[in-house]
Design a protein around this nucleic acid. Structure first.
Lengths: 191, 191
DNA sequence: ACAGCCATGTAACTTGTTACATGATTTT
DNA sequence: AAAATCATGTAACAAGTTACATGGCTGT
């Protein structure tokens, strides 16, 4: 979702080679990326004129650097807000909306399953906050914030799931619309 | 992210034609889909043996129906929990992690921008809860739940952003690792 | 020598997404 | 007749993801 821009952001610190970008990305964000994706993303960035191969360092690493355009895009991305749940589709919201409106679906059970899953994740994250890790302190701080974000989101979700359950009993699902279209007709295939 | 499975879920109510699927999806979830995507998704579902073209109705619509496998997959998806912020990458978390660890980035300003954006969205969603819409009551209930979810998520995020700001002042960013790898060497290209 | 890691890359594939072409039908 | 709407599709592309091939270097 954001490897492309992340690479640009890291490259703003200076030239890097492929595997180094992977290491920096994983160290800083705590996530993981397939190295192959780093290389193909670099290819695309080069194709789009956002980075350039600038040669090989003393150890033989293939170095990439930002172009002007790449610097602009990376900086802009880092400074922009992210439209949280507004624009990007939220899979669970879609799922619940369908479960609540389709007669064949069992919304109550979906809510229960989701609550169990989220509760389990919550427990895990809380434990993670306790366990001392041996990474650098500034990294640890970032990790803590990330886990904290997930904990807060999970708590909010659990509250919301309660509300869903309260309300779901009233919901009456309904089948497909059978009304014929009032205007326009499909193509007659017999021809 | 979930159009494929959504179509399977809707088709569990009976045979549908392409544009009908789009209408049902938008009506039930409140989201919007490009019709073209519905058709290409149907092609892929057919390729994978999850749906079949079963003919043409009296008006000339091209009908699709679930196969056995398609029914299983759709039902399973509707019953499964969604790994919330755990697995899927959260763009803002990535962004903040980088902003907090890269010297060139301005984490404080990113946090401020994000708070402004989320606050604005929150205001909009609260207004949405007030405004009476003229859709069917069961649809309206689902819409309310979705907006409620976003409001709760936004509130949790704002609290978390406060925490980030409190903590961010301590964070010390750092540049790229300059330590040479202890083992393994890249390929020498001169050859 | 051999196992294992560092490093670069490629091929194949998935879902999502948009823009466009085409034709029928209905409304104005 | 013209504009709007319903409907079906295709073409092209973006970004993510995995699996694999290759080769060099290091430690045992």
């Amino acid at each position: 979702m954001s490897i492309r821009q992340s690479l640009l952001a890291i490259l703003s610190e200076g030239a890097c080679y492929g595997n180094q970008l992977r290491l920096e990305y994983e160290k800083r964000t705590g996530g993981s990326v397939n190295v192959g994706q780093v290389y193909s993303t670099l290819d695309r960035l080069e194709r789009d004129g956002l980075v350039t191969k600038t040669g090989i360092d003393s150890l033989g690493h293939v170095l990439y650097e930002l172009t002007g355009a790449g610097g602009v895009e990376g900086t802009a991305w880092l400074a922009e807000a992210v439209g949280r749940s507004g624009e990007s589709r939220d899979e669970f919201l879609t799922k619940l909306a369908l479960a609540l409106t389709l007669p064949a679906a069992d919304a109550a059970s979906l809510i229960a399953v989701q609550r169990a899953s989220t509760t389990a994740a919550l427990t895990g994250w809380r434990a993670e906050l306790e366990g001392g890790s041996q990474v650098e302190p500034r990294i640890q701080l970032v990790r803590r914030l990330i886990v904290d974000s997930r904990i807060r989101a999970a708590q909010a979700e659990l509250d919301w799931l309660d509300e869903c359950e309260r309300v779901a009993v009233i919901a009456v699902p309904f089948g497909l619309d059978s009304e014929p279209p009032r205007r326009g007709r499909p193509i007659r295939h017999a021809e």
